[in-house]
Simulated scan of single mutants.
Amino acid sequence: MDATELQAISDTLMRIVTPDMTPKQLIKAARKEHPNASKRDIARAAFFSIIANADQDHGKAKNLQAFAIAERTQNGAE
């Protein structure tokens, strides 16, 4: 995944994430706009989004952090 794609997925995540979204719902919503993105790509974009946007929207950054950590932990156990 190149930097442009990472930024595009990150922007999508910031736009669509809500406090009540489950990781599965977030992945499904992100894949509507980025059908070729893997779960790993989406998790990486979530971490990128946290770093890039934490000072602008703390609530969304916190939701993405929970998602990214859950995905990273889940992928590490597989």
Score class of each variant (00 low, 15 high):
Phe48Asp: 10
Lys62Gln: 06
Arg72Lys: 11
Ala52Arg: 05
Glu71Ala: 07
Ala43Asn: 03
Asp2Val: 10
Gly76Phe: 13
Phe67Ser: 07
Thr22Gly: 09
Asn75Val: 07
Glu71Tyr: 05
Ile27Ser: 03
Met14Asp: 07
Gln7Asn: 12
Gln56Trp: 10
His34Gly: 03
Lys39Tyr: 04
Ala43Met: 11
Asp11Lys: 12
Met14Val: 06
Asn36Lys: 11
Ile27Pro: 01
Glu71Thr: 05
Asp11Val: 14
His58Val: 04
Ala29Gly: 03
Gln74His: 15
Ala46Ser: 09
Thr4Phe: 09
Ser49Val: 07
Ala46Val: 06
Gly59Ala: 14
Asn53Met: 10
Ala77Thr: 10
Ala61Asn: 01
Thr22Val: 12
Lys28Thr: 11
Ser38Phe: 05
Ser38Leu: 02
Lys32Pro: 00
Thr18Arg: 15
Ile69Asn: 04
Ala8Leu: 11
Asp55Arg: 11
Arg44Thr: 03
Phe47Trp: 11
Thr18Lys: 15
Asn53Tyr: 15
Ala70Ser: 13
Gly76Asn: 11
Ala8Ser: 11
Glu33Asp: 07
Phe48Trp: 12
Ala46Gly: 07
His58Pro: 01
Gly76Ala: 15
Arg31Met: 04
Gln56Cys: 02
Lys39Val: 12
Glu78Asp: 08
Ile27Asp: 05
Met1Phe: 13
Ala52Glu: 10
Ile9Pro: 01
Pro19Ile: 13
Met14Ala: 06
Asp41Leu: 02
Ala66Pro: 01
Ile51Tyr: 11
Ser10Lys: 02
Gly76Trp: 14
Arg44Asp: 06
Leu13Thr: 05
Gly76Cys: 02
Pro19Ala: 15
Gln7Pro: 00
Gln7Ser: 13
Thr18Ile: 12
Lys24His: 15
Ile42Leu: 03
Leu6Asp: 02
Met14Gly: 05
Ala66Phe: 03
Met14Phe: 15
Pro35Trp: 10
Ala52Met: 11
Lys60Trp: 14
Lys60Cys: 11
Leu6Pro: 00
